[in-house]
């Protein structure tokens, strides 16, 4: 019961954060909105109809479930990932960590919050989508498909959490793009499954975004991409749902199991920030120099510099790197408030 309350309050914070910032909303909605308003209708003018399960449907009708899936994907993935990265940077993650809650509770809190955010966004576009899908009717199939979509949304929320606990603030955008782009472009958002090479069709279908798209298409149009293998729509929805559930289960277990990675404020500060920040110089600072100059371990250069073993430093590293180390440390030295770690620590 207590853990439920803690997970709920963590989830509430994620939701509140998301909706209290117009930036988050804007970023999440701008891409699908552009697709809905510009890309979809333009492609629709070019290709007219798309063949799906032996039916010809208008491109916008085809494309809309894809936009819903895309909205959910970005909403859930970015919300949890961004939140946890920021919490690590500010040290708030440590405060949550020292609370009497299990890794499971904390993970579930973040994932639940981001899943709700993703679902609300998806729902907004689903409502818009109904304008393009006059055939939509509430049925057991559509309710089932929408319910399964929540599992898919939670999968992406958990995935965002896992990325957020693993990467630094500096690398978050890059890693986020590196992971999201292949997911998006190897899915059935833009192109029907029949247009992909036969050899990769199965992989495309089990892409988690394709599963979401398929569930959205099943809910809105009663059609599924699985029909290249079998034509029963209920089995298709069940298969999508089971796969979403399994993927979510695997992802959440990974998050919980790797939870200690969440600890430690792995903040990375840029050179610019050293001078602005009057906080005490600590090993974060030295580690960030290491990172900046591309030497993985601090102990490779700091003990040498500290003990004045310049010859060794110059033998080990190119002159340029040594100069850069000097510049960065010296830059910090001129800052009055800056203290240095004592001789050994």
């Amino acid at each position: 019961m207590n853990s439920m309350i803690a997970a709920r309050v963590l989830a509430w914070r994620v939701i509140r954060h998301y909706f209290s910032s117009w930036k988050g909303l804007f970023i999440a909605i701008i891409t699908p909105a552009c697709m809905l308003l510009f890309l979809g209708p333009s492609i629709g003018n070019m290709v007219q109809d798309v063949a799906l399960n032996g039916h010809n449907v208008g491109y916008m009708t085809y494309f809309l479930p894809g936009i819903i899936a895309l909205t959910i994907f970005y909403g859930a993935l970015f919300t949890s990932g961004n939140m946890i990265v920021m919490d690590r940077v500010t040290g708030f993650a440590d405060m949550i960590k020292v609370s009497p809650n299990s890794a499971k509770t904390i993970t579930m809190g973040y994932v639940l919050g981001s899943a709700i955010v993703g679902s609300i966004q998806g729902l907004i576009f689903l409502m818009i989508g109904l304008l393009f899908s006059p055939a939509f009717s509430v049925s057991v199939l559509s309710i089932l498909a929408i319910a399964f979509m929540i599992a898919g949304t939670a999968f992406f929320g958990a995935m965002g959490f896992l990325i957020g606990t693993r990467v630094s603030f500096d690398n978050f955008s890059l890693i986020f793009a590196l992971i999201s782009i292949p997911f998006v472009y190897t899915s059935t958002i833009f192109v029907p499954i029949g247009y992909f090479p036969t050899t990769i069709q199965f992989i495309i279908l089990i892409n988690p975004i394709s599963l979401l798209v398929d569930l959205a298409r099943a809910a809105l149009l009663g059609l599924s991409s699985w029909n290249i293998y079998f034509s029963n729509i209920i089995i298709s929805v069940l298969l999508d749902g089971i796969l979403c559930g399994v993927l979510f289960g695997m992802m959440i277990l990974t998050c919980i199991k790797t939870y200690p990675g969440f600890t430690g404020n792995k903040r990375q500060r840029t050179g610019k920030e050293f001078n602005k920040d009057s906080a005490s110089l600590d090993y974060d600072f030295l580690h960030s120099i290491s990172k900046e100059i591309g030497i993985k371990n601090l102990e490779e250069w700091w003990p040498l510099l500290k003990e004045g073993r310049i010859d060794e430093l110059l033998i080990r590293f190119p002159e340029e790197k040594v100069k850069k180390i000097l510049e960065m440390v010296k830059q910090a030295m001129v800052h009055e408030d800056r203290g240095f770690p004592a001789n050994d620590h």
Binding site: M333, G339, P341, A342, N343
Partner: peptide, 10 residues
Amino acid sequence: RSDFTFGTLQ
């Protein structure tokens, strides 16, 4: 702070 601060490093 530490003796290491400015003198030694400098």
